Computed example of a mutant assay.
Amino acid sequence: MSTDPFASPPEGVAAPAPQANPGIAPAYTPGHTAAPRAFVPPGGSPVGQHLAALAPPQGPPLAHPASYPLAATPPLEVSGHARWAKVGAFSAAVAGLCLAAFNYLVAVTADDDLAAALVITALFGVAFLGGLTGYLTLCLWMIRVRDIVKPQGYPAPESWKIWAGWCIPLYSLVAPLRAMDKLAFKAGKERMTPFLTLWWGGFLVTNIASRLTDLTGIEASIVLVLSVVEAVAALASLAGLLVLIARISAVATTPPPGQALPSAPPTGAALQPGPAAWQQQPPAGFTS
């Protein structure tokens, strides 16, 4: 009898059926609904014992990345914008005082007084720069507060209304007040109403008094009274605006009632073991 393992069997003798290797899973064929399995040697075989001895110790599987405790996204800060907004509020108040002095000097100064003309020019320049600084810093602060309170579900003005509301004629009489009123909703509209009135009322009085001093034929004494009213109104508007900035900024970053801002896990906290990703989600195209 031939001992060649590759020799063909004699004629009339059927070839023996191949023995299945218990350590190899059946071959994967197209249309099969189960995922193909990897080679797993039997634990009792020498090959399986050898591979088990070589394999590093395995701990519990890591959790699915979707279940990791992610660090919270740092909330937007408003403190820096609030400080600059307060600087802008003082700048706007200084602009109002300079404008009051400017209007008075223009009304009572002779046309040939060169020294007074230089002072008037300086006052106008300071008033312009102070007003521009107040406009930019206040709008930037309002935009930041809007970006914080809007995702929390509170009313918030649109960005273009904050910027353009100060510049459009007639619309500028109500647009900044309406925008600030929405931003003050979270701080308590009833508590903020007096300061809103003080801020915007002082602002309107300042502008009205300034326009009245531009009229021709007004006596110097009346111009002086209007200038004083303009200066006092500017200071009153400053007081109301400072309170609004402080109180709105203080509550802007606090979570809404019944909700808590997400927090990052403590430093050094271990991940909880859980099923691996391939165990949680079967491969596409296969069914478990």
Rank of each mutant, 00 (worst) to 15 (best):
L235V: 15
S237I: 08
P262K: 02
A72R: 05
F185K: 11
Q279F: 03
S8I: 08
L241G: 06
I24M: 06
P30E: 01
I218F: 10
L97Y: 04
P282M: 11
L196W: 02
G43A: 15
L170R: 01
A156G: 08
G134M: 08
P265G: 05
S288C: 03
F90K: 01
S91M: 11
R191S: 14
E230H: 07
G59N: 07
P155V: 12
V229S: 03
I222M: 13
G201W: 08
T197M: 12
A164C: 13
S221W: 11
V223Y: 01
L97E: 00
Q280D: 14
I245K: 05
L215C: 02
L70W: 07
G201H: 07
G80T: 02
L204C: 05
L170V: 08
T73S: 11
I24N: 02
G240K: 03
N207R: 14
A264L: 00
A115K: 06
D181P: 05
Y104V: 11
R144V: 13
P26Y: 00
G23P: 00
A264N: 14
A85P: 04
P10R: 05
S45R: 06
W199V: 01
V223P: 00
P155S: 12
S263F: 00
Q19G: 10
F286L: 04
A234G: 14
S172E: 06
A82N: 09
I168D: 02
P46L: 14
F6L: 14
V251R: 02
D112A: 15
F195V: 09
W84N: 13
K186N: 12
P5W: 01
T206D: 01
R37D: 06
L54P: 01
T109Y: 00
D4L: 09
L140R: 15
I245G: 10
G23M: 03
S172M: 12
D147C: 04
T213Q: 15
E219N: 14
P18G: 05
P176N: 08
L198K: 05
A101V: 12
S288A: 12
